[in-house]
Design a protein around this nucleic acid. Structure first.
Length: 209
DNA sequence: AGTGCGATTGACT
DNA sequence: GTCAATCGCACTA
């Protein structure tokens, strides 16, 4: 059973530098597909390929920054490359990356990972064994990667941050674009990006093809 | 596979 | 008091 025995392979991951990021919310969401998210714990590395993102650009009425800065959303207004971590629905943390210049509120939601390293630890964090369920969905992703409010406001591109964005381990497949998940209001912009056909992507099947 | 629903915390009106 | 960038489970099929 591949689900019960996740890979113990390790990878040569390079920290990306902030200057490599596109300074644009939608371009960043697209750019992050295939890159890696890494959390270095004291004894273990947790990492995964980013396979699904959503852009929440400046001025987006469903973005958390829409009504201006508050103590809870201020991280979205930091220079691009900072973590914005928010608790929602009583049980889920969601991880975003700020995506514009200082003072502009915008971000990219990281929605799903294909686990690479530390999947056994992720199984413990999540209480599920199936590898495809470890980080498929933003709440699951945060739980698997042990991301909570401590990381809100962290600069992912500071020299020695424990949480960072790494180079791809393989070339990303074709990237699909769709409407965002869980956005029920009139805003139906196609701002969700995902690696097409990847089983670690969340959402209904037709939005993974 | 798709749909429906309850749980549950924090921020803001 | 209301609402939320969700999840897991219980359904139906």
């Amino acid at each position: 059973m591949p689900e019960a025995k996740p890979s113990k392979q390790s990878y040569r991951l390079r920290r990306l530098r902030r200057v490599e990021l596109p300074l644009d919310t939608i371009e960043l969401a697209r750019y992050l597909i295939g890159k890696t998210l890494v959390h270095d714990l004291p004894d273990t590395r947790l990492s995964g390929r980013i396979v699904e993102t959503e852009a929440y650009p400046a001025g987006d009425p469903v973005g958390h920054a829409f009504r201006g800065p508050t103590p809870a959303n201020r991280s979205l207004f930091l220079k691009h490359g900072h973590a914005y971590v928010r608790f929602t629905y009583g049980s889920c943390w969601l991880m975003n990356i700020s995506s514009e210049t200082p003072g502009v509120g915008a971000g990219v939601l990281i929605r799903a990972l294909e686990p690479l390293e530390g999947a056994e630890r992720m199984q413990l964090h999540r209480g599920v064994s199936r590898v495809v369920d470890l980080a498929r969905g933003p709440g699951r992703l945060a739980a698997a990667m042990a991301i909570d409010r401590c990381f809100d406001g962290l600069d992912l591109f500071s020299r020695a941050s424990r949480l960072w964005i790494g180079s791809p381990v393989r070339r990303a497949g074709p990237v699909g674009v769709s409407i965002r998940i869980g956005i029920s209001r009139a805003v139906r912009r196609k701002l969700r990006f995902y690696e097409r056909g990847n089983p670690f992507v969340s959402g209904p099947l037709r939005l993974r093809a």
